[in-house]
């Protein structure tokens, strides 16, 4: 059985928090550059240019891309033949967040209690998901999830009779109601099927697909991704919602089996500052 020490996990999480916030992925930069070629709104073009320049500055000066350095979402893909030693996995992750946010001069954006709303002062706790896999794999994904776009996300329990048209209608409703609030151009993650909570989780995982804009292996799902991307970009919302052709950079769908009576659909939105990094220990 393979052993991984908590200190390794803490160090990795700290490093990924900082890198996610400073360095925009090459696939996202490419998508912004592609959008700039197609965009015909003068205001939209100006905004896209600013975003590309911003990514350059953040990388060169090693500063956060956005002042909302996010809720830290950590996905652990844990092989069942791995044993964590030296402490608790959850504590190790939260310590990594604490160190990363302090050392990286990142903003503390978490309140300890949703109703009392006092800042925890170190951006903990993280939102932690663990998936158990066969073997000895240990993979960490650290996402800095901004709230402006998270707030525009939504879930609906559709009826099976609503079908694909119902799914498309709900996704478009969520995008249109979000308007300029989630900082378009956005990335749209959609979870279809499962239960109430699984649909939401799938929509988050859909955002983590790499490279950005690649398609689901199932052809019917892939064509739905293309169709939705086209419809979203024809909405006219455009960069920052001020009008244009670039409302979304990508639409990723993930699906799961579901109950004969259900058709859950969750739409999780990420902004253009699409920040996550991964490491295999």
């Amino acid at each position: 059985m393979r052993e991984i020490h908590c200190d390794q996990i803490t160090a990795a999480v700290a490093k990924l928090c900082v890198e996610a916030n400073y360095f925009l992925g090459a696939d996202v930069v490419q998508a912004l550059e592609g959008a700039l070629k197609r965009e015909n709104s003068p205001v939209g073009r100006e905004i896209l240019k600013q975003l590309i320049e911003n990514a350059d500055i953040a990388r060169a000066e090693q500063v956060p891309l956005c002042q909302d350095t996010g809720f830290t979402v950590v996905l652990v893909e844990l092989g069942q033949d791995v044993r964590i030693v030296g402490g608790s996995l959850v504590d190790a992750i939260n310590e990594g967040v604490r160190q990363g946010y302090q050392e990286g001069f990142l903003r503390y954006s978490i309140v300890g209690d949703p109703l009392l709303r006092k800042n925890t002062g170190d951006n903990t706790p993280a939102c932690i998901h663990v998936e158990v896999l066969p073997g000895e794999v240990f993979k960490l994904t650290v996402m800095a999830k901004g709230a402006g776009c998270e707030n525009m996300s939504a879930l609906k329990m559709l009826k099976p009779s609503d079908g694909i048209e119902g799914v498309k209608g709900f996704v478009m409703k969520v995008i249109k109601e979000g308007g300029g609030n989630p900082c378009p151009p956005i990335i749209v993650g959609v979870g279809i099927g499962g239960t109430f909570e699984l649909a939401a989780y799938l929509s988050k995982k859909a955002l983590l697909r790499r490279p950005l804009g690649s398609h689901h292996p199932e052809p019917t799902v892939a064509s739905l991704e293309e169709e939705l991307l086209r419809a979203i970009n024809e909405s006219g919302l455009g960069p920052m919602g001020l009008g244009g052709r670039t409302t979304a950079l990508a639409v990723h769908l993930e699906t799961y089996s579901c109950h004969i009576a259900s058709l859950p659909v969750a739409v999780n939105i990420d902004c253009h500052s699409h920040r996550f990094k991964q490491i295999w220990l």
Binding site: E53, N54, I57, L65, C183, C271, H272
Partner: peptide, 13 residues
């Protein structure tokens, strides 16, 4: 007034 969301390193200048 709107200023570009997420252009935060640029705006800081």
């Amino acid at each position: 007034f709107l200023t570009t969301g997420g252009a935060s390193a640029l705006i800081a200048r």
